[in-house]
Amino acid sequence: MPIKVALVDDHNLFRSGIKSLIKHFKEYEIILEASNGDEFIKKITSGEKPEVLLLDLSMPVMDGVSTAKWLHTFEPGIKTVILSMAEDEKTVLTLLKLGIKGYLLKDSEPEEFKAALDTVAAGKYYYPQFVTEHMMKQLQKPEAEVASTKTELNQRELEFLKYIATELTYKEIADEMSVSVRTIDNYRDSLFEKLQVKSRVGLALYAVKNNLA
């Protein structure tokens, strides 16, 4: 039996292109389409549920993040792959916390699209390269090196890391820590250098792995 796929995107032309592509994959079958999250939820509430969901982020009425939040609560068994041109770190962090299984840029090659689909359908994760690179870097660090790095962080940097994996903006983190946004920027830049990462996602992955968040 083909794996059931749903496609949610507000651009008809893009949906048509994805449908045409998936027709060449005999393992998959698109069972429903929707132009926003609200329409998608109504369809699966009253009808057949997909195994894999291809979800756009920027849509009217109900966007991808709101849809992912709903799925996280009510339909966590649906494997969600985000299809987007956005690489915004805060958005990606939010989606990771909501349990998305995959993230793919819309300008990806068909071969990469198929690889992502196969990986997620098999119950595994398919994340963009910049996320997986940070993740692997942290996982491959020897425990002694991790411990050594932690001892080099001061108390305020460790406190900052507690907030970094949340949805708080840098300004909101500054308010929580009762410091200026400039001070928060200094903490961030210092941690980038000490931990050898280049983004908020990298800091968040380090914090989670080392039980700091």
Rank of each mutant, 00 (worst) to 15 (best):
V5L: 05
A6C: 13
L7Q: 06
D9C: 02
H11Y: 10
L13M: 04
F14Y: 12
R15Q: 05
S16E: 13
S16V: 06
G17V: 04
I18Y: 05
S20E: 14
L21K: 06
I22S: 04
K23V: 02
H24V: 03
E27T: 13
S35W: 05
F40Q: 01
I44T: 02
T45Y: 02
K49F: 12
V52C: 07
V52Y: 12
L55C: 03
M59L: 10
P60M: 14
G64L: 08
W70P: 01
I78K: 00
T80A: 06
E87Y: 05
V92P: 12
L96C: 06
I100Q: 04
I100L: 04
L105Q: 13
E109I: 01
D118Y: 00
K124Q: 04
Y126V: 08
Y127F: 15
Y127Q: 11
T132G: 03
H134K: 14
M136H: 11
M136F: 06
K137H: 09
A144V: 12
E145N: 00
E145M: 01
A147L: 13
S148C: 05
T151H: 14
L153R: 08
E157C: 03
L161V: 11
K162G: 12
A165L: 08
E167W: 10
T169D: 14
E172V: 00
E176I: 07
M177L: 14
V179Q: 03
Y187G: 03
V201N: 08
G202W: 00
A204H: 01
V208Y: 12
A213E: 04
